[in-house]
């Protein structure tokens, strides 16, 4: 299953990108850590989840209709 394992990199990338982005916004570590969590959740819910739902719809649900 070499392809399945790559998806474990997604949350890691999400956290790292959020951490760096939050770190360049502030010097206060409380703000940085809160920002990391906020941006990670935001990207997860507002970007990755919709993409997952769209792909899931067209691969699982839509073929049953057509």
């Amino acid at each position: 299953m070499p392809n399945a394992s790559i998806y474990w990199h997604l949350p890691l990338l999400l956290i790292l990108v959020s951490l760096v982005y939050s770190a360049v916004r502030s010097d206060d570590w409380n703000t940085i850590l809160r920002g990391t969590l906020r941006w990670a959740l935001y990207m997860l819910l507002m970007f990755m989840a919709p993409v997952f739902l769209i792909l899931w719809f067209f691969s699982e649900i839509a073929p049953r209709w057509w």
Binding site: V17, V20, Y21, A23, V24, R25, S26, D27
Partner: peptide
């Protein structure tokens, strides 16, 4: 990401 870090070092927190 380092582009952001470079600019932050130059211009301060965003």
């Amino acid at each position: 990401l380092n582009l952001l870090v470079i600019y932050e070092a130059y211009a301060g927190p965003f």
